[in-house]
Design a binder for these strands. Structure first.
Lengths: 188, 188, 188, 188
DNA sequence: CACTAAACGAGACGGTACGTCCCGTCTTGAA
DNA sequence: TTCAAGACGGGACGTACCGTCTCGTTTAGTG
């Protein structure tokens, strides 16, 4: 029940961000959108507006990775999983309206938050990849955790700025996964 | 004269950031510290507090690179320059009290700003390195600009997160420059 | 409770006017004197400073007439009432320190406001006199309201500028009431 | 030359009042409209904005009476003069756009000023009427000055609030002049 | 004719108050 | 108890004028 309310607030706050942007979203706005009083918001987010904004971003990031997980659930092996993940994630980022809007109108706040959360996000992706690496033969001296960490960072970096790769093109992504992500690992 | 005042405001604002942090620095604070009225601050920074904060960060970043430039002015050749730059920059970042304080207490704001300015900063470093690369034999097909861009990004990245290198140790840095920064370029 | 606060603000503002004058009384001053924050003043007087000043004048005028009503409460008949009213009102105006101060130092603001409120004030006096006229024989064709209106205007005018009458001298006032205020009415 | 500039400023300020109203007319506005710098305005009106506004009202009032004087210049005798004056003045007040606008949108300021200036204005009218009364037989014991004062006040009062008279109707005005203004004087 | 003195334009500046906004705390009353 | 409702203090924001002042630049008047 409590989590219910919390969820409702986050959801409402996210909706407000979609409408007003990060900077212009007010505690009052969020409360109203959630059908709650401001006081209640403060009960659930004692850190006030800052905490709320922070958690909204975290929350939406979480949802993002949940969708990602679902999207790659059926992948038969590691390369397929990475390929699927890159394609889906890239596409998801590009077509995430709120994200795109915020990135264009007030990137500082979002990027600031994301940079600060970077470790946590890498962690998320890593945890998500880990099982796959544990089921695979790795180069001597490389633990699954280390490798997962490395790949997680690479993947995130590629999503942000794909460089010369076109993440829309499945063939290119296949290539990318093979040559840049996995190749270094199979060299013993 | 006008630039004088502008400078004074930035300087004062920076001092305030050092004392109060980015978030708690007020236009009024900056004005008082500069010995000016708030109105005057708004005359020079019509964008208000936001513009002021933005420019303070930019301004200090500029000063940082100016100090960097001075520090490496005497380097005899490219490897020495890069080595000097890495050592100095790392040391400077580590011992920059204001920077460290802000990074610990309110990284979001600063990182947000820096991320947004990233391009500009890469540009600064690139411009700064460019002459050195133009005076040097480069791999076929690689323009000095491209190479400078690449090295600039690498250097910044290394300063941020050195990974396995200890940028305090000159020998390691020498190694790093040779194997990671310049090696790829000398392969024709 | 709300009216309480409103009252407190008006009272405080009036005190400020007494000290600083109408023009130099600040919203901040009034708030401070009322022991409230400026924000609260704006909550009760959304029209801001203008509304506040306006209402302070109105409010004190109201209190003035309340005192007047009390002073003449015991008058046995109409002539006595008018006499009492003239004497009391004149004395009250003359000895109203704040009023006198403002009239001397910044008459424009006050007079402007009073002129604008003139109708309302005439109304106040009229309502106050009306019952007395309804209990009295009036000239044919003259409604009590009409007569009250006429007398109200005369009284106010006399208070402002007594002309040749000395409103301190009870005998003169008796005369005045008889010959100038009531005589015209008794002529059928 | 100096008076020229002064005049120009007043004229410009009046134009601004016509456009923006009394309260919203800025020293800057007036200066701009006069094609002068703000500094110059302060040179001619050291009392600043207040003095300027005050004088603009005075100035326009002066012009008003000048027009009045011109309008009645040809009157053959005192009754005709008063008749002409009443008709003209009433009409002039009614059709004075700026006056009407200000009276409707911000009467306080204007009325405040006029009330304060009341004595001066009565004086103007009085001086203007005086010669006519000196050339006429007056009741014993009444100096021309006293009579002129009385009539001046009556006329101004009638212009402000005509009461039951229709100052548009020449016949009524003729009547009014005879019965209310001059009758009392001819009774010895 | 030069030269000084005044008038003026331009605009920076300090200062002050305004009105607005939002935050975070707290109280009260109803479910 | 939990929550809605909302008053309140606090504080910063950005804006708008005000009045003062300092500079150059005319523009006259005078020696």
């Amino acid at each position: 029940m409590a989590d219910d309310v919390r969820e409702r607030i986050l959801q409402a706050a996210f909706a407000c961000v979609a409408r007003y942007g990060l900077a212009k979203t007010t505690v009052e706005d969020a409360a109203r959108a959630a059908g709650l009083s401001r006081a209640t918001v403060y009960r659930y987010f004692p850190g006030g507006r800052d905490q709320l904004v922070r958690e909204v971003i975290s929350w939406e990031a979480g949802r993002f990775f949940a969708r990602l997980a679902a999207a790659v659930a059926g992948a038969p092996d590691l390369p397929a999983l990475l390929e699927e993940a890159l394609v889906f994630a890239h596409e998801a980022v590009e077509s995430h309206e709120v994200l795109q809007k915020v990135l264009q109108t007030e990137p500082e706040v979002l990027l600031g938050q994301l940079t600060v959360d970077a470790d946590r996000i890498v962690g998320l992706v890593k945890v998500f990849l880990l099982p796959s690496f544990e089921a695979v033969a790795l180069p001597a001296g490389a633990g699954a955790a280390t490798v997962a960490d490395y790949v997680a960072r690479m993947v995130l970096s590629l999503i942000e700025s794909p460089g010369r790769w076109d993440l829309t093109d499945r063939d290119q992504v296949k290539d990318l996964v093979r040559t840049e992500l996995l190749a270094p690992l199979s060299q013993v």
